[in-house]
Amino acid sequence: MKKKRVNSSTFLLLITIGLFILMYAAGMIIFKEKGFAKPQMFLNLFISNAGLIVIGCGMTLVMITGGIDISVGSVTALVCMLSAYAMENKGMSAFSAVGISLLIGLAYGAVQGALVAYLEIQPFIVTLAGMFFGRGMTAVVSTEMISIKNELFLKWANAKIYLPIGTYNKKGIFQQAYLYPTVIIALVVVLLITIMLKFTNFGRKLYAVGGNRQSALMMGINVRKTIFLAYLLDGFLAGLGGFLFCLNSCAGFVEQAKGIEMDAISSAVIGGTLLSGGVGTVIGTLFGVLIKGTIASLITTQGTLSSWWVRITLSALLCFFIVLQAVIAGAKRKK
């Protein structure tokens, strides 16, 4: 009766990590000529996806409670547009832009959280409205693209942090690998959220609410407050992630970050988070993001395939993981 079984969610996580290693290794072997094996390539995964990593963390939180947030993409777009507008059209400082971004995220989190938690409206609908609202507001601010030329902002955006590893280029000069502060921020967020989920009362409440809402209520957990806070935190992270995204793109425009919510959801699912709630880790989501990044890199490096193949491959992968989760759940039920 006291068997040591591999927890099924650990199992899924191992598959995700294994898949990532496999894909990346394959890329390193196949595309060695094109520089895939360079350490910079690996770091680029983090650099181009820093925003997504942070957004993914937030998404994981609400998914653990059994909810979802499809507004994150539009929050990102709105944050970028408003930051650009504030800095370029209103001459505000880069610090103000940070403040604005976080405030927008919090506002989103508060409103959506209140509607989901206290009015018990389906998260899908609420965040759908949020998505519409955000996209529309971005266009209301400006229908034209705004490039960011703020000095301090650009300084942040271009501040390379060099690492003591690298490769030699064709001329024999040692090129150090680098990353940006956005990556550090993203990884710190992952660490903090992981600690929160495992070691704080609030984190465990998230799992409880997602596992069985009725039971959590009966056990004396304030379910509504827990869900509200989950969305609040998710909104905050969406704002933060949006700002990191902005540091990447250095511009604000209407079509920005379209589809990023689906990337976040896919990353979470691939990373082992169950949409039904109660199960999930941000480490898993991190690897989900890395997998998505690897696919994009592989296809870009290959060069001839159209970019639609990224979407199709990601969908096929998502399909695989979804089916895998279903098969495991089915096997569990039979017992």
């Binding site: 799992y207 997602g210 069985n212 039971s215 056990m219 109660g278």
Partner: peptide
């Protein structure tokens, strides 16, 4: 009558949720 516990948490967690023993503010 219906078992009001959370299936996705451990037995220990179900016993102590809401009042977990803590060390330095962490569980």
């Amino acid at each position: 009558q219906e078992v009001n516990l959370c299936p996705n948490l451990t037995v220990a967690e179900n016993l102590f949720i809401g009042r977990e023993p803590q060390k330095y503010g962490l569980i």
